[in-house]
Structure formats: structure tokens, C-alpha cells
Simulated assay, not measured.
Amino acid sequence: MAESKNNIVTHGLSGKVGDLLVFSQRNGKTIVSKAPKERTGELSDKQKAHKLKFQKAVLYAKSALADPVKNQMYGIKSDSSSGITTYNVAVADLLNAPDIEEIDLSNYSGNPGDLIKITATDDFQVISVTVKIENADGILVEEGNAVDNGAEWIYTATASNSDLAGDKITVHATDNPANITELTQNL
């Protein structure tokens, strides 16, 4: 890759030159790239869904920058030396839903006080995890919020559940932009 230093002709240049080149600024450097071609043809359903999701991410990032609390929160993760702005962090947060990596039921035997441990991660922050326990016939045993202990989320059972066969545990993890991930595990 060629690099031109201290070029007085291109320094600070930004915009499109005809249908050939695009100049942009990133971290104090001038980037030159080939001009994109206009899209022809109809978008697929997946492309439409992705475009809509990205539009929502842009709107979310703009509203996050206008909110002093969210702006500061996302600003902590920004890194101007690598070109990651507060805006970029907020967009990425909306585009990436949390992951529920594990539901540990080894300490759950249907008694009040039993623990269910959940490992949930996000590119920015998981803000809540809820647990719902249903019998095999779909009757709700209990549901509630898990507590973050720093390493994992812990749900403490409150109801007695004598017959665990076929029971279903459903976990929801939510992040700041309200992305929700669900994982169900059967006993």
C-alpha cells in the first residue's frame, strides 16, 4: 500500500471527485478510495432487514450522543487513537445483541434458595437477565431477575418445584439498546 506524507495537494481533502475517487478523513489521515457504484436491482429480504437494522442503529447512536449519560457511558469505550468514536460504539451496541453462553442448572433441584447461574456477555454491557421456570405442561413455576455478581448472573429460586422432569428454563438477556436474546434449556 502506498503512502504519501505531507502532501499539500490532498491534505484535508474530503468528498467525491467525479465518479472515480472518494477522499475522506480518518484519524488525521486522508483516505482515497474508488467511488462506489450505484446499486441496481431489488434488495433481497435479508438486505432490507439489514438496512433497516442499520438505520435503527444510526438513530439510536444519534439519540445516545444527545443524552449526556449515554454519551459519557459510550464515550468511555471510544478510542480516538484507533478511530473508534462514541458514535461507533453506540452503533455497534445496537447491532450486537447479548450472548447467553451457558445456563448452569447443576445447583437447581427445585427447592427455594437453589441457584441457577447464567453466563451472558455483550460487546458493551448486559443490563438485565431474567429467568422463567415452567413445568412440562407449560404451567409457570416462577420467574424473576437474576443478579450480576461481576462474573456471571445468579438467579435464586423462590418456589418449590417437586417434579423437574420436562421442565423448561427460559433465560432472557437484555443490553442497553434493548436487544433481547433468549435461550431455553429443558431439564
Rank of each mutant, 00 (worst) to 15 (best):
A2K: 12
K5C: 01
N6L: 08
N7Y: 02
N7V: 00
N7M: 00
G12Q: 00
S14G: 01
S14K: 15
G15P: 08
K16S: 10
D19F: 03
L21A: 14
V22Q: 11
S24P: 03
N27L: 11
N27T: 06
G28L: 08
G28S: 10
K29W: 10
I31L: 15
I31K: 10
V32S: 04
K34Q: 13
K34D: 10
A35N: 05
A35T: 11
P36G: 15
R39V: 14
R39M: 07
E42R: 15
E42A: 14
E42L: 14
L43W: 08
L43T: 12
D45P: 02
D45C: 10
K48M: 14
H50P: 00
K51L: 14
A57T: 12
V58N: 09
V58F: 04
V58I: 15
V58K: 13
L59V: 13
A61R: 09
A64G: 09
L65C: 13
A66L: 08
D67L: 02
M73V: 03
M73P: 00
Y74W: 07
G75W: 01
I76W: 08
S78V: 06
D79H: 02
S82N: 10
S82L: 12
G83T: 09
T86K: 11
Y87K: 13
V89K: 13
A90T: 07
A90H: 03
A90E: 04
D93G: 10
D93I: 07
L95R: 13
L95F: 06
N96L: 10
A97E: 06
P98T: 00
I100S: 04
I100A: 07
I103L: 01
D104W: 11
G110I: 08
N111L: 09
P112G: 13
L115T: 12
L115G: 05
I116H: 01
I118F: 02
I118C: 01
I118L: 00
T119G: 01
A120I: 06
T121P: 03
D123V: 15
F124C: 01
F124V: 15
Q125H: 02
Q125P: 00
S128W: 00
V129T: 09
V129S: 04
T130A: 08
T130N: 09
I133C: 06
I133W: 03
E134N: 11
N135Y: 06
A136Y: 09
D137N: 12
D137L: 07
G138Q: 09
E143A: 07
E143I: 04
V147G: 00
D148S: 10
N149I: 14
G150R: 02
A151W: 01
E152R: 05
A157L: 12
T158H: 09
A159C: 00
A159Q: 13
A159S: 11
S160F: 07
D163F: 08
L164H: 06
L164F: 07
G166M: 11
K168H: 03
K168Y: 01
K168R: 13
D175V: 12
D175E: 05
P177L: 10
T181M: 11
E182L: 05
E182R: 11
E182Q: 10
L183N: 00
Q185D: 04
N186S: 09
